[in-house]
């Protein structure tokens, strides 16, 4: 059975990481593309999208769902509860007063938008129910940047050589069958 490798190269700065990624982009290791790369870093580099290419984030779609639920559900809740409580003294005002309901609907719109955004973030980032990276270094939280790749026997050694060429500080690996 062919072995599979997870390899993590730790680098001291973004410059070397980006150079290594440029080489991967230039197909210096056939069979490995920049789409296979996962990056771990202590901060988000502002130009990371230029290096890795646009990768989608669907958090805002989840936010939109939360917003719509907050507006529609919030207003519906108010209207139904007010219509259900006709014995309440109305003081000459309508049973379903639009101005005060707008205030409360607004609050519920924001509340559910924020809750949906956070849930979306946790789920889409793989933090809740997600698969974690097997290889992790505490140094990523300090000052080092990691490139993580899943490789096969053909690409394993060339990638390690490429990492060394770009002054990798440490290489960690895990073998699976």
């Amino acid at each position: 059975m062919r072995k599979k490798y997870s390899v993590m190269g730790l680098f001291s700065d973004f410059e070397e990481v980006f150079c290594a990624l440029e080489d991967i982009k230039k197909n210096k290791v056939p069979g490995v593309t920049v789409d296979d790369v996962r990056l771990m870093s202590p901060i988000e580099h502002p130009e990371i999208d230029e290096v890795l290419g646009e990768r989608p984030s669907h958090v805002r779609r989840v936010t939109l769902c939360g917003s719509l639920f907050g507006i529609i559900g919030g207003f519906y809740f108010l209207v139904t509860s007010q219509s259900d409580f006709l014995v309440q003294p109305q003081g000459g005002k309508p049973v379903v007063p639009i101005p005060s309901n707008i205030v409360l609907t607004y609050e519920m719109f924001i509340l559910f938008s924020v809750i949906a955004t956070v849930l979306g973030f946790l789920v889409l980032s793989g933090l809740l129910f997600g698969k974690r990276e097997k290889l992790y270094s505490e140094k990523v939280g300090v000052d080092q940047i990691a490139i993580v790749l899943d490789l096969n026997e053909e690409t394993y050694e060339p990638i390690k050589a490429l990492f060394r060429q770009h002054k990798v500080l440490e290489i960690r690996e895990e073998v699976s069958k």
Binding site: L39, M40, I48, D49, S57, V59, V114, F121, L124, S125
Partner: peptide, 22 residues
């Protein structure tokens, strides 16, 4: 389980900005 992956940072950036706007 935060590990600082590019996927986590990307979603984090969008989330944080969206929340700030709300």
């Amino acid at each position: 389980g935060w590990q600082g992956t590019d996927r986590q940072w990307r979603n984090f950036r969008k989330t944080y900005m969206t929340m700030a706007c709300f």
